[in-house]
């Protein structure tokens, strides 16, 4: 058995509800990430996330099985309401989570002064793509891990890792955003609300699925963003995934609905020293969490035991393809030729 050159990265899985958390823990996650039921987290959807009681139950369950809990407070405090975000940080520290995932520098500053012992992670929404930015967060706020936006090639990720003492976490699976994470205002253009402000892209109250004979139309605050034939797969109702007329042609002008899937480059990800792999999807159900966690666990374990002989099993790909948005998978920016 040839041992892998680097330690296996931690598998970080999404939990939008207690059953999803348990599904992640039971299927081999090393850590789960979750959020409060309010706009302090970027998946602030009706009925999703944890109230104080379910949060405490979830933490107890995860810790009981040796799984870490990371709490995302990854939106930006809104003018006049900064206190709500600070209280969320205090609550997270009191709950005894293993780390708080933050995006806003003001909040990072608050957290590291107020709770000096608390481990802090820099959220993908913080949009730090260079080692300089990450090292700044390390120096000023003691950030121990940074989640990289999905905009870097694998070589660029490696470059970051070589030049920072901060652990690096990358995305391994899930729906893709356009390559502008933490800085996207498309949703505000249509609805006046964006992930960074209210914690949701294209909030449901603006979305209308309109059944027409032979087709389904998606409208976002009245703006037609897509039309699906009865046999065509649908996508999330976000502006970036819409089909638009551009110079006489109708197509996915901004981005095709796709999922990121790194199984095929997993050995490279481990080799360059990535410390954690994140699965997107706190808005998805326990069934999704089960399927994705189980599959990535199997792949990581296979890599640990097979080393150089690692290969992607067809049933892993089939399982992931099934839950993918748009039913197509890409390596995203990781293998992009341009920089």
């Amino acid at each position: 058995m040839s041992a892998p050159a680097a330690p296996l990265p931690a598998l970080v899985c999404p939990a939008g509800s207690l059953p999803a958390l348990k599904a992640a823990v039971d299927n081999g996650a090393d850590a789960v990430y979750l959020g409060f039921k309010n706009d302090t987290n970027a998946r602030n959807f009706a009925g999703l996330n944890f109230d104080p009681k379910t949060m405490a139950d979830g933490i107890r369950y995860a810790h009981g099985k040796g799984c870490e809990v990371l709490l995302a407070i990854n939106t930006f405090p809104q003018a006049g309401r900064v206190d709500a975000w600070r209280r969320a940080v205090d609550a997270a520290a009191d709950l005894g989570v293993d780390a708080i995932i933050l995006a806003d520098v003001g909040l990072l500053d608050y957290a590291c002064r107020r709770h000096p012992g608390q481990r802090l992670h820099l959220s993908v929404q913080g949009s730090a793509t260079s080692y300089e930015a990450i090292n700044f967060a390390h120096r000023e706020f003691g950030v121990r891990r940074a989640v990289l936006p999905r905009v870097l090639t694998l070589a660029q990720v490696e470059h970051v890792i070589r030049n920072t003492p901060v652990e690096i976490e990358v995305f391994g699976f899930g729906s893709l955003c356009v390559m502008n994470e933490g800085r996207c205002w498309l949703s505000s253009y249509a609805c006046g609300e964006s992930p960074n402000t209210v914690g949701a892209c294209s909030p449901a109250k603006y979305v209308k699925w309109d059944k027409q004979p032979g087709a389904m139309e998606t409208r976002l605050n009245g703006i037609l963003i897509d039309r699906f034939g009865d046999d065509e797969p649908a996508g999330y109702p976000t502006l970036c995934k819409g089909r638009f007329q551009v110079q006489g042609e109708t197509y996915y002008a901004l981005e095709e609905p796709t999922s990121l899937n790194v199984l095929s480059i997993l050995p490279d990800i481990v080799k360059i020293g990535v410390r954690a792999i994140k699965v997107e999807g706190r808005q998805r159900s326990p069934a999704y969490v089960t399927q994705v966690t189980r599959t990535l666990r199997a792949a990581l374990d296979a890599l640990a035991s097979d080393g150089e002989r690692y290969h992607v099993k067809p049933n892993w790909q089939a399982e992931l393809a099934k839950v993918s948005e748009g039913n197509q998978a890409t390596l995203g920016a990781y293998n992009r030729p341009w920089r």
């Binding site: 059944k211 998805r284 159900s285 399927q291």
Partner: peptide
């Protein structure tokens, strides 16, 4: 997963989208 079934058009949800999300979640 309901999203999977929805994307694949095996589950149709019409009406008030936010209400749908509340029920799903």
């Amino acid at each position: 997963d309901p999203d999977t079934l929805f994307f694949n058009r095996e589950l149709e949800i019409t009406g008030d989208t936010e209400l749908g999300l509340v029920v799903k979640n």
